Amino acid sequence: EVPFKVVAQFPYKSDYEDDLNFEKDQEIIVTSVEDAEWYFGEYQDSNGDVIEGIFPKSFVAVQG
């Protein structure tokens, strides 16, 4: 069931425009499960802007 919160276990950096880049310990709200390997989610950056994109499930852990 979406949405749910995950926390980055590792930093994720990608050159693909659709990917969500983040640092370790970033909290991310997952709004869609793309497939067995990928989530789609969002978070607010330090400027208060909402950043969204896809990212690999293996880089995050589900909270709770």
Results as ranks from 00 to 15, higher is better:
residue 1 E to G: 13
residue 1 E to P: 10
residue 2 V to P: 13
residue 2 V to R: 05
residue 3 P to M: 05
residue 3 P to Y: 07
residue 3 P to I: 05
residue 3 P to K: 06
residue 3 P to L: 06
residue 4 F to H: 02
residue 4 F to W: 02
residue 4 F to S: 02
residue 4 F to N: 04
residue 5 K to F: 09
residue 7 V to Q: 05
residue 8 A to G: 03
residue 9 Q to R: 14
residue 9 Q to V: 14
residue 10 F to S: 07
residue 10 F to C: 15
residue 11 P to N: 07
residue 11 P to H: 07
residue 11 P to S: 11
residue 11 P to M: 07
residue 12 Y to E: 02
residue 12 Y to C: 06
residue 13 K to I: 11
residue 14 S to C: 07
residue 14 S to D: 02
residue 14 S to K: 03
residue 14 S to P: 03
residue 14 S to T: 10
residue 15 D to W: 09
residue 15 D to Y: 09
residue 16 Y to L: 11
residue 16 Y to V: 13
residue 16 Y to F: 12
residue 16 Y to D: 13
residue 16 Y to N: 15
residue 17 E to M: 11
residue 18 D to F: 15
residue 19 D to W: 07
residue 19 D to I: 08
residue 20 L to G: 01
residue 20 L to N: 00
residue 21 N to H: 11
residue 21 N to G: 05
residue 22 F to Q: 01
residue 22 F to P: 02
residue 22 F to H: 00
residue 22 F to R: 01
residue 23 E to G: 07
residue 23 E to C: 10
residue 24 K to L: 07
residue 24 K to G: 04
residue 24 K to Y: 04
residue 24 K to P: 04
residue 24 K to D: 02
residue 25 D to Y: 11
residue 25 D to L: 06
residue 25 D to R: 04
residue 26 Q to H: 03
residue 26 Q to S: 01
residue 26 Q to C: 05
residue 26 Q to K: 02
residue 26 Q to R: 03
residue 27 E to W: 08
residue 27 E to S: 06
residue 27 E to F: 05
residue 27 E to M: 11
residue 27 E to Y: 06
residue 28 I to P: 01
residue 28 I to V: 04
residue 29 I to R: 06
residue 29 I to P: 00
residue 29 I to A: 03
residue 30 V to L: 03
residue 30 V to G: 01
residue 31 T to N: 05
residue 31 T to F: 04
residue 31 T to I: 08
residue 31 T to K: 09
residue 32 S to W: 10
residue 32 S to L: 07
residue 32 S to V: 07
residue 32 S to A: 14
residue 32 S to Y: 09
residue 33 V to D: 07
residue 33 V to Q: 06
residue 33 V to P: 03
residue 33 V to M: 08
residue 33 V to T: 07
residue 34 E to D: 08
residue 34 E to H: 15
residue 34 E to V: 15
residue 35 D to W: 07
residue 35 D to Y: 08
residue 35 D to Q: 07
residue 35 D to T: 08
residue 36 A to T: 11
residue 36 A to N: 13
residue 37 E to V: 10
residue 38 W to K: 07
residue 38 W to N: 09
residue 38 W to G: 01
residue 39 Y to N: 00
residue 39 Y to E: 00
residue 39 Y to Q: 00
residue 40 F to E: 01
residue 41 G to P: 01
residue 41 G to K: 01
residue 42 E to M: 14
residue 43 Y to Q: 00
residue 43 Y to P: 00
residue 43 Y to A: 02
residue 44 Q to A: 11
residue 44 Q to T: 14
residue 45 D to H: 06
residue 45 D to S: 10
residue 45 D to E: 06
residue 45 D to T: 12
residue 45 D to Y: 04
residue 45 D to M: 10
residue 45 D to Q: 08
residue 46 S to P: 10
residue 46 S to W: 09
residue 47 N to H: 09
residue 47 N to M: 08
residue 47 N to P: 02
residue 48 G to L: 04
residue 48 G to M: 06
residue 48 G to F: 04
residue 49 D to G: 08
residue 49 D to F: 12
residue 49 D to A: 13
residue 49 D to C: 14
residue 50 V to I: 14
residue 51 I to G: 01
residue 51 I to W: 13
residue 51 I to T: 07
residue 52 E to D: 09
residue 52 E to H: 13
residue 52 E to Y: 13
residue 53 G to H: 02
residue 54 I to R: 15
residue 54 I to W: 15
residue 54 I to K: 15
residue 55 F to K: 01
residue 55 F to W: 02
residue 56 P to N: 05
residue 56 P to G: 04
residue 56 P to Q: 02
residue 57 K to G: 06
residue 57 K to R: 13
residue 57 K to C: 09
residue 58 S to T: 07
residue 58 S to F: 08
residue 58 S to K: 12
residue 58 S to A: 11
residue 59 F to G: 05
residue 59 F to D: 05
residue 59 F to N: 08
residue 59 F to R: 11
residue 60 V to E: 04
residue 60 V to W: 03
residue 61 A to D: 14
residue 61 A to H: 10
residue 62 V to T: 10
residue 62 V to E: 10
residue 62 V to D: 08
residue 63 Q to R: 09
residue 64 G to D: 12
residue 64 G to P: 12
